[in-house]
Nucleic acid binder design. Structure first.
Length: 587
DNA sequence: GCCGTTTTCGGCCCGACTGTTTTCAGTCG
């Protein structure tokens, strides 16, 4: 079985950790880590890059790492990695997952005390054996035990944005009520809209940081204080999420917000650009540097109270946070060719939602009213099809009965709001659809989705998706990869083949807004959009609250460089219907 | 190990916080 991109990415991250433990040149192990992080986010299988000779075009992949990827794909193994594993116990990598333990400490514990596993480390800390080591004391032993307990309780998996964002937004709202707070914002991966969040970053502008820091570390919901300084504090929230707060003077807002929004790769590139122009960039200012890169003490520093001013000073257009991943955005900002990304305000309809007819929580009438209240111009009711018995899927008879009710409701709303009738049709394990063509033909809009047999082989999954795409009645593939973040991996499909077919048939692909799904994920959405495949951003709502989750889909689309032109439900009702009509098979 | 609109060699972002130190190393983002 061929190694997945994520398998290979993990191997390079492990190599990076092992080389770091060995004390290897830091730029060398950082190269492996960077490659690992990049490979995990690629929108195509590595084999596809090998096949068309573009492997070394991937940023961070050069001759040496390229060769290692080829070896892994061809043989499933890597000689270099096997040799490394013979020298460094792999269980040391578990020890490095503990907060506060890096490569140097892991090496120290291993070499001085023979510790190679988490259990051994915990026992040694409990027995007071660590305090004798250089740089260690009683306090470090206690912190270590707390951190090991926290790791055991919460693990170190990243939290889905849908869970993390409300937590951090509540904390920010609390801080904004404090005296002396001039401005506040989310930063980090929350602001960039990543699907999962490592820790929550909050930025506050104030001239009096001390009372704000105090309020932060003593507020409700703090499980423990990780750091408490003048400008930076960190807490662990009872949910297990780490939240970092930075307080800075208002005059530094632009550089600070830019700096703490990241990503790291984007910031590194931006700093290089600043250096080329004779400045060193940090979170408070742009400072002139001399030819030898020494700071010029007397030269004036430039501060910026907005990000726009900072980017403009460096000769760049302002870059939306969602694009700041060093994926070409700096080059395009320089050339002023950045796309105008889609916004929530562009969305005119929602093409995927459920009612009590299948597994939704609200009646048809209630769901339509809730969607109408949220300002949509049109919606499609898409309950589950008959084989989805657990979800109370609709028989053909019930489907047609529902259609009659949808038509009545639609008529009652008049011309300013349109209720269309569709279905979310299962793509069954054998690759056929769950309603016959003559039934599909009676629907206004058909979503086809994978819900069962998700662990089939790549060939089978791919064929099922290709079948659905080739059915002229199918307008949209719902949540194409069927992943649940942190719960269930995406299906194994040949996405190059799937996208090529969608491009040919003009079938739309969904960006599902449910924060458990966010599917298509951003790198795939970017690739689909670049191929001209129509996209739809839908909530897949099963209750009223879920109708409000559209923002998560929009931010995912923005991370995929998607513009309103790519998105069929960002069109007026007339243009949406025209798109649908053009898709209908000639009668 | 990667990379190049001054470079194919010589760079590779920068600072806060902590715990251990008497001026700093390790970790983190």
């Amino acid at each position: 079985m061929m190694l997945s991109n994520r398998d290979i990415a993990q191997i390079f991250c492990n190599i990076a950790d092992m080389l770091e433990i060995q004390g290897e040149n830091k730029f060398k192990f950082l190269s492996y880590r960077r490659a690992g992080e990049t490979l995990a986010e690629l929108p195509r299988s590595l084999q596809a890059y090998v096949d068309d000779g573009t492997l070394e075009d991937i940023p961070g992949v050069g001759k040496a790492i390229g060769e290692k990827i080829r070896e892994l794909l061809a043989t499933g193994k890597l000689d270099f990695y096997e040799q490394l594993r013979a020298q460094v116990p792999e269980t040391l990598l578990d020890i490095m997952r503990v907060n506060g333990v890096g490569a140097k400490k892991a090496k120290l514990f291993w070499e001085q005390l023979g510790i190679t596993t988490l259990a051994e480390l915990e026992a040694a800390a409990r027995d007071g054996k660590l305090r004798a080591l250089a740089g260690m004391g009683e306090k470090s032993e206690q912190k270590l035990l707390t951190a090991i307990a926290a790791l055991a309780q919460h693990g170190d998996t990243r939290m889905p944005i849908g869970k993390a964002k409300p937590i951090v937004e509540r904390i920010l709202a609390h801080l904004l009520t404090l005296e002396g707070v001039q401005e506040g914002a989310l930063a980090g991966s929350l602001r960039r809209g990543r699907a999962t969040i490592g820790d929550g970053d909050i930025l506050i502008a104030s001239d009096a940081p001390a009372p704000i820091m105090h309020a932060f570390v003593t507020m409700d919901g703090v499980a423990r204080v990780l750091a408490h300084g003048d400008t930076k504090s960190s807490i662990e929230h009872v949910s297990g999420l780490q939240v970092d707060l930075r307080v800075l003077p208002r005059a530094h807002w632009g550089t600070a917000l830019q700096y703490f929004t990241g990503s790291k790769a984007h910031n590194v590139k931006l700093r290089q650009l600043a250096l080329e122009r004779g400045y060193s960039l940090n979170e408070s200012a742009l400072s002139p540097v001399g030819a030898d890169k020494a700071m010029l003490p007397d030269a004036p520093k430039h501060t910026f109270d907005s990000e726009e001013a900072l980017y403009h000073f460096l000769g760049l257009a302002w870059i939306p946070p969602e694009l700041r991943e060093d994926e070409g955005e700096i080059e395009q900002a320089r050339a002023h060719t950045l796309p105008k990304l889609i916004t929530r305000a562009d969305i005119q309809g929602d093409l995927h939602m459920h009612t009590t007819w299948s597994d939704g929580k609200l009646s048809l009438r209630e769901m339509v009213a809730e969607a109408h209240q949220r300002g949509h111009r049109y919606i499609v009711i898409t309950d589950h099809s008959q084989s989805a018995t657990i979800a109370n899927g609709l028989s053909v008879e019930r489907l047609l009965a529902q259609q009659a009710q949808v038509r009545q409701l639609n008529a009652a709303y008049g011309d300013s709001f349109h209720v269309l009738h569709g279905a979310e049709v299962d793509i069954k394990a054998d690759g056929t659809l769950d309603y016959p063509d003559e039934v599909l033909a009676q629907l206004d809009f058909v979503v086809a989705s994978l819900h069962v047999a998700l662990t089939q082989s790549r060939a089978q999954i791919t064929q099922r998706l290709l079948n659905a795409l080739q059915n002229p009645h199918v307008d949209l593939i719902g949540h194409p990869s069927a992943r649940y973040i942190n719960e269930r991996p995406p299906v194994d499909a040949d996405w190059d083949a799937v996208f090529a077919m969608a491009q040919r048939t003009g079938t739309a692909l969904e960006i599902n807004s449910n924060p458990r799904r966010l599917d298509l994920d951003a790198p795939y959405a970017r690739r689909a959009a670049a191929l001209g495949i129509p996209l739809a951003i839908n909530t897949d709502a099963h209750d009223a609250h879920m109708l409000d989750l559209m923002d998560y889909g929009v931010i995912t689309a923005r991370r995929g460089w998607v513009t309103a032109e790519h998105v069929i439900n960002a069109r007026s009702f007339e243009r949406f219907m025209a798109w649908l009509a053009a898709r209908q098979p000639a009668v």
